[in-house]
Amino acid sequence: MEPLGENGRSSMMPNGLFGMAIFIVAELMLFAGMISAFFIVKAAAPSWPPPGQPRLPIEATALNSLVLLASGFFLIQAHRAFHRGDRDSMRRPLLLALALGSFFVIFQGSEWVALLGQGLTLTSSSLGSFFYLVVGVHGIHAAAALILLAIATVRLRRGYLSPGFFGAAEALWFFVVGVWPVLYMVVYL
């Protein structure tokens, strides 16, 4: 451990990572709020899922969730390589994580299109409202994190990826991967 952290300052971790960690706590509470709202409305409903609504694609989404988890797994590998200082063997897992993550988001998008066609819309029932709200907010976070990861990839190639930036980008992606199983269980099951 350095005696006084960055530049003689008493810092605990890179500033970028620290700032992102705080942001993630706030985002965690955003999801906690939506989950709570979901439970309250669900408990008050006479029957769940509401009658006349299409069934959510539980199995396909389960597979897609595995893709997302795999992406998180590859990012862990990239993380290890980064902290070994081995930037060459970091590129492949990072690109894989990025690709699998993008696949997840695109697949979710195609599911939305299918569900809209089957009559599940934002206003068709409280299930629909919550489905699009929760999954949509998660999707926005996923897209933002993927953009950060893409920037990290570019910086890696150009050789100036800092621990602060990479820490922030991967923290956000781990968050996106980490809350998804919870959201899946709450909304789909």
Binding site: I35, S36, F39, I40, K42, A43, A44
Partner: peptide, 9 residues
């Protein structure tokens, strides 16, 4: 059920 949901959340 809904009151329980409020307490739980």
């Amino acid at each position: 059920a809904s009151r329980k949901a409020f307490v739980g959340t």
